[in-house]
Simulated assay, not measured.
Amino acid sequence: MRITVYSKPQCVQCDATQRTLRSVGADFTVVDLTEQPAALEYVTEDLGYSQAPVVVVEDGTGQHHWSGYNRDRLKAAAAA
């Protein structure tokens, strides 16, 4: 499984998302949307989100994603 957090600086929900993933021992990658124009285009154009963070979870069944801080979904993704 792979978890990617598309984030931006000084974002309270982004920080909370990363803190929650660290607290449950999840392995994840952070992509700064302000430094990666291609990532920003992917999040806004391909996935359709306009708010950070965007969490993308790739597991054996496909790709799941959401925007904003969602503690329950983060814990479920880390447990899978």
Rank of each mutant, 00 (worst) to 15 (best):
R2W: 00
T4K: 07
T4V: 15
T4R: 13
V5Y: 04
Y6K: 06
Y6T: 01
Y6F: 15
P9N: 09
P9R: 07
Q10G: 09
C11G: 00
V12K: 08
V12M: 10
Q13I: 07
Q13W: 03
Q18N: 12
L21H: 03
L21R: 00
R22E: 14
R22Q: 14
R22L: 12
S23N: 14
V24H: 08
G25E: 11
G25P: 09
D27T: 09
D27V: 10
T29A: 14
V30Y: 00
V31D: 07
T34V: 02
T34L: 08
E35T: 10
A38H: 05
A38S: 09
A39Y: 07
A39I: 08
L40Y: 11
L40P: 05
Y42C: 02
Y42I: 05
V43N: 02
V43I: 10
T44G: 08
D46V: 05
D46K: 11
D46F: 03
L47H: 09
G48F: 05
Y49H: 04
Q51T: 15
Q51C: 13
Q51K: 14
A52H: 03
A52R: 04
A52C: 08
A52I: 00
P53F: 00
V54S: 04
V55C: 06
V55E: 05
E58L: 12
D59W: 01
G60S: 14
T61L: 14
G62S: 11
Q63D: 07
Q63A: 13
H64Q: 15
H65L: 14
D72R: 14
K75F: 13
A76I: 05
A77L: 07
A77C: 04
A77E: 02
A78P: 08
A79T: 12
A80W: 05
A80V: 13
A80M: 07
